[in-house]
Design a protein around this nucleic acid. Sequence first.
DNA 1: GCAATCTCCGCAATCGTTTGCGCAAACGAT
DNA 2: ATCGTTTGCGCAAACGATTGCGGAGATTGC
Lengths: 333, 333
Amino acid sequence: MNRITIKDIAKLLDVNPSTVSRALKDHPDIGEATKKKIQQIARELVYRPNYQAIRFRQNKSGLIGLIIPEMGMFFFPSIIQAIEEITKKNGYHLIILQSNESLVKEKENALICKNFGLDGLLVCLSKETTAIPHFADMLQSKIPIVFFDKVLQSKELSTVVINDYNASFTAINHLARKGYKNISGVFESKNLEITQSRKKGFLDGLKKHQLTYREDFCFHVNTLAEAKTQFANLLNQKELPDAVFAMTDNALAGIIQAIYEKGIAIPDDLAVICISNGNLPYYLNPPITHIRHSGYMVGKTAVELLFDLMNDKITVTKRQLELETFLVELDSC
Amino acid sequence: MNRITIKDIAKLLDVNPSTVSRALKDHPDIGEATKKKIQQIARELVYRPNYQAIRFRQNKSGLIGLIIPEMGMFFFPSIIQAIEEITKKNGYHLIILQSNESLVKEKENALICKNFGLDGLLVCLSKETTAIPHFADMLQSKIPIVFFDKVLQSKELSTVVINDYNASFTAINHLARKGYKNISGVFESKNLEITQSRKKGFLDGLKKHQLTYREDFCFHVNTLAEAKTQFANLLNQKELPDAVFAMTDNALAGIIQAIYEKGIAIPDDLAVICISNGNLPYYLNPPITHIRHSGYMVGKTAVELLFDLMNDKITVTKRQLELETFLVELDSC
DNA sequence: GCAATCTCCGCAATCGTTTGCGCAAACGAT
DNA sequence: ATCGTTTGCGCAAACGATTGCGGAGATTGC
């Protein structure tokens, strides 16, 4: 009646279930004749293994967890694209858990992952996260975890990030060489490591070209809307910057709205550059010169590291990987 | 050493595992005293049930499958946002499978879902899909499936779509009332139902206002890049449209690039309107007037229908739901 | 005081598959 | 012919939790 099992086949052929099990996986202990017979009848009856049972027996879920702060438009879709492809290629599947940039939800998600019996975990921390006791026991157990993008830097963790410092340094370098002198910077939340690295690159870029750091031209924002209102405020001041650096697509989207509303011309009145991992810079008018880092590559690198850890837990130790970025010169500078 | 089990607790308290099992779920057959004792020690030892075993025993995976053509930037992120929230609220989790707009991969994914023992399935068909024999046996079994967005219309299926006809009709209506007369239409692949519905609304909109259908102004595209090149071609003709309707964000992104490159002014030289479920219209310069339909609502509606089907398989029959859209008037007309 | 009922818990099977071990028959070598 | 090895397969336990059934002891009813 229902789905047919190994036992059914065993009864039908009057052999032991263990023989069927072994025959179906081509175990050398089983004679060719019986093997053929079993495999044939399995095909005829469209035997489909109960993976639920197998996973239980093997104590493997076949599932990779992915904890992300929030889906958004730019970054995670491409990351997920990569991760899904590769997990599937390795016979695993992906469970996505969003924490909505909330530490509380991130903890809930960590708990879910522990209970669910996932075989591996990829984590991008929320904005609120400054320590990770909620991952402590998983880190001690044999379940590998790879942190990516928003991470806590530590030799004790496996991490994949981009070289944030170089990215913003390159951006400022580009602006400076084009002759811009009064550069505004729009950054995300202060406590994020990527914010700190990108700001450091920003500052060192200014320093290299002996440009002054205009603190009144720089600010930190948490949301797209904040970026817009804050930059709109800046544009209402008497003294204006001649260029602006946006730390993320998100920040870019905010300041662009402010610029459009004010009717300011890019790049004639104001040059714009940003760090991006999406398509937004291409869609804008004019297309925005930016430092590109590919979400796809981050996802790919992270999940491949994860599988390395999962497949060979001895030789592969914790690793901290850093991906490089590159300048895409379009029309906004 | 390892994770502690019901058996461990049973041995420790010298009771039967079944008693522990019942005590932990507050079964009335167990006396208050033993219940307390068991629950306490379970807490102390941080007993965490092996969900793998439970799922196997109950023959439930606790997993919802989501098959989508491709992640993209606009639509699916918001859909996933909604679906993930609601599945989690119901104690389920989400597995995402991408078919990359390929029928072959869609079939693979369908197979994976069958094998994995999912409890429910949400499907957005690929562009290539014109029939769904690969879902036939799942539809006959007790696993509920809800199709959304790209569906095959049928009384035999549960579907969630937007009212595509009304959406494009409203768009053309808007253009016509603004006085535009030569309207270009950029559509996605011909064989999609949503293309047909949206084109029908487009044509009926023209008819209602006695505008002629300029076949030379209209075309079908499969990708963003195609939209760009084709529309760029159109812009090189002698006779130009005074307005263009883009069927999707994707089509919009393509034609916008062509427009920017050609240096055409919106809306003075050319009005633009589209149907959108993302943020792109807001990011462009000027912001694009569009017919909005919310991916979030589609996702929410689909997954809620799915849970209705899962929870009460008798009274809830197949349903075909249609969500309405609305005009968002910005600056491109 | 005896039967009927209730309370509380144990027994054992079960879900589908895997796997270590053992054993008979077949085979090979001397 | 004898011993040792290989071949081919069955036996049964195991994974962790659940559940129908049954039964001992306590309680109630008359």
